[in-house]
Design a binder for these strands. Structure first.
Lengths: 219, 219
DNA sequence: GTCTATACAACGATAGAC
DNA sequence: GTCTATCGTTGTATAGAC
């Protein structure tokens, strides 16, 4: 009967608001007073949960990490089973985000890498963890599609290429405030992957996976 | 005999220092007092040349635009004539910049797109002009290499893809503070372009450019 | 846990003497 | 063109009552 304060608590609200404002305005440009006001918390109370602004930053990055699967990957991949199509479904998700925010939100992780990566070492490590998490998911896609790809293509390296393309495409799209660059990049990336798929189809590998025992096959 | 104040003047020093600090620390995190101190100018004098901080930002972006050719393209392309290799020579230039600054400088344009793109419309337009200038140079490379590429590949779209790859690769490299992601992205980009070159070589186009008059060739 | 009140520094910007 | 002095605001962070 005591306590049990509904859990939808002040702390949660602060993290939520901070995530939005850091993504929208940047870290330095967002004041703690503004966060407190929007969260309907008075500035003094903010320091009860987060002694420093950096503590709050860390909390938002931890939260971003937890939310990747349920709020980014799951919605993007709903109804999409093909692993290669999942890659492009995720890229379409970021395009949709740009539309919904009129190019005002970028990738929250990439934004902060640039803004605080130099000056906040702990935050940088958390940002890396977020990238790793993202890369793991895309690497799995390419691993699942491995039989359809040329054998010398490392799934991790392909995943990195997709991350790089996404981050670059989001940035350039925001600069121009239109989708020309974003769509151009995705067209080229798709063209590349389709060429890899076609190449693997034209030169099928002697699937060493199935009968790995009889590996002595010379001439 | 009067005036002629050596031209290596205060204003130049301010722009130079501001360019460095905006690139290194970001726009919001750089104070005018800090700029003045480093340039050995007193804060009051700064406002003689640049009434507002934003005016100084605009001046640095204008300067970046002017410096692309002499300070970025020319050094990267020294001794490199092949247009495709020029693309990779430029990407190697950004890699070198990351090495020299221990991953602390990114692309000055990309950084500012993210930091001030939303809130400073005039600066955003200048940033776009910088991107356009960069894209023009790379587009020319692909245009020069057009006979060696498949005919359905727009040079501008390829240039955009290179810009996107560069910006994303620089960002991700800075997050990890190593070159794994950067090199992975460049390997994939090179693989893609080599596949395009090989494809064009395998399927030579019936060069319609040379004899454009006899275009009625059915069955 | 939440509130009021406030300390203290740094910010962008200005006025005016020289 | 350069300097001194300073305004008003906002920033992060604290102290302490409730």
């Amino acid at each position: 009967m005591p306590s049990k304060p509904t859990r939808d608590d002040t702390r949660e609200r602060l993290i939520q608001i901070a995530m939005e404002l850091f993504a929208f305005q940047g870290y330095a440009a967002t004041g703690l007073a503004q966060i407190a006001r929007k969260a309907k918390v008075l500035p003094g109370s903010l320091y009860y949960f987060f002694p420093t602004k950096e503590d709050l930053l860390h909390a938002t990055l931890q939260r971003r990490h937890e939310l990747l699967q349920p709020e980014v990957l799951d919605p993007a991949w709903d109804g999409v089973d093909d692993p290669i199509e999942r890659v492009f479904a995720l890229l379409a998700g970021y395009r949709r985000m740009l539309t919904l925010t009129d190019f005002q939100h970028g990738c929250p992780i990439g934004n902060l890498v640039i803004e605080v990566g130099n000056s906040h070492p702990d935050a940088r490590r958390l940002l890396v963890r977020n990238f790793d998490n993202w890369l793991d998911a895309i690497e799995r896609c390419f691993r699942d599609a491995a039989p359809r790809l040329p054998p010398d293509h490392d799934p991790r390296r392909l995943a990195v290429f997709v991350l790089v393309t996404m981050e670059g495409a989001v940035m350039v799209a925001r600069a121009y405030r239109n989708f020309e660059a974003y769509d151009a990049a995705i067209i080229q990336l798709r063209d590349y992957l389709e060429r890899l798929l076609a190449d693997a189809l034209a030169h099928p590998q002697p699937d060493k996976a199935r009968n790995a025992k009889k590996r002595s096959r010379r001439a």
